[in-house]
Design a protein around this nucleic acid. Structure first.
Lengths: 198, 198
DNA sequence: GACTATCGAGACCTTGCGTCTCGTAAGTGG
DNA sequence: CCACTTACGAGACGCAAGGTCTCGATAGTC
């Protein structure tokens, strides 16, 4: 059988310990202070064991994010049914997270990967951005279908504008809540305007 | 006089040579393959001369951008008077630039600097983001005053949404023109809608 | 029990950042 | 013209961290 492999099998426990150590050290120290030696040491693993399975350091941390050891829960949109309120709560949470330097470190790592080789970038998009982007998009479409949100503006455009504004203001370190509330009202307004003014 | 300084004055030629070398190497090799040694070597300068005037490597590259050795002309908004057309042309130009890996390398350097120490980040914002952001904002306000753009949405929110969407889609490497056209139409629509429908 | 691939551990090499030193050059003030 | 002060190029140096190599042990398969 081609699937049958001889020799000592790979230790799943060690693999998980490495990813967990990478995630923990990233949140504790920030991405650029994480070292392979530290990861190996905390995981109780040898350096070679890491390099046997991962090509380089960024891939280890990226995998830790992908496998869910490093979540970015701040980017999860709450769902109470009130879109405007949910978006504003989401904004507040995100703004708080963006003020945390450790969170920025992760964002930085992601941007680094995103501007790197096409292959890594798309892998990262699939595992990180899509899980954030798609639910937001789905929610917007759901509200459009329910008549709670105007269909004049495509859900995709609204999602882009929301995530984009968040990203932009985070990187520029500009205050968030007020402006985000403004853009939310603006994007959600058409329904109310069409309903009340006409 | 406090302004009078004794000793050998700083060499402007060397300063420019360093910035030029940093810019050239960044476009040639990509940001993370640029080394201080290489910059010093190409500039015909000593390493200490670099560290005497810059705190660290990202700041050298950032300064090269600031001083105009690494321009991002793609982010300049044209001004024909037709806001919608200008924004769409701007989008197309920006999209093309974002497809250039050298451009992405510069963006990466800027993000690295932006997520770094507060002081460096704000300096970068003042010199890079503001020159892009403020003219866009001014243009939007001008059109609002002229009645060409609805005042229902704040100019700041529109500017954020536009730059944010661009940034987001660039980093996620998603197609740009169609979606950007959608968001532009959406943000500019209120005037037309209010004028024609009501 | 032979074989094979992985394991932890750690020595080792290399790269690149940032510091330090040295002899020299370019200004200012006496 | 000469001290004084600061910048200059060059390069040695220390150090941290990425990544490779070796080694004896271990956990599976045949």
């Amino acid at each position: 059988m081609t699937g049958t492999r001889t020799g000592r099998p790979r230790s799943e426990a060690t693999r998980l310990a490495i990813l967990e150590a990478a995630a923990a050290l990233t949140t504790e120290l920030g991405y650029d202070h994480v070292t392979i030696d530290a990861i190996a040491s905390r995981a109780g693993a040898g350096k070679q064991t890491i390099y046997r399975w991962w090509s380089a350091k960024p891939m280890v941390v990226a995998d830790a994010v992908i496998e869910g050891f490093l979540r970015l829960p701040a980017l999860d949109l709450p769902d109470t049914g009130d879109l405007s309120a949910d978006l504003k709560a989401w904004t507040t949470t995100s703004a708080a997270a963006m003020g945390d330097s450790r969170f920025l470190q992760v964002v930085r790592a992601l941007v680094t990967a995103a501007t790197g080789p096409e292959q890594d970038a798309s892998r990262l998009y699939e595992h990180i951005m899509r899980p954030t982007y798609e639910p937001l998009l789905a929610r917007l479409r759901r509200d459009q279908d329910a008549g709670l949100l105007s269909t004049a503006v495509s859900a995709e455009s609204v999602a882009d504008a929301l995530l984009g504004t968040l990203l932009f203001r985070a990187l520029a370190r500009l205050p968030m809540p007020e402006t985000m509330a403004g853009i939310i009202d603006a994007l959600l307004a058409p329904t109310a305007a069409a309903g009340t003014d006409c």
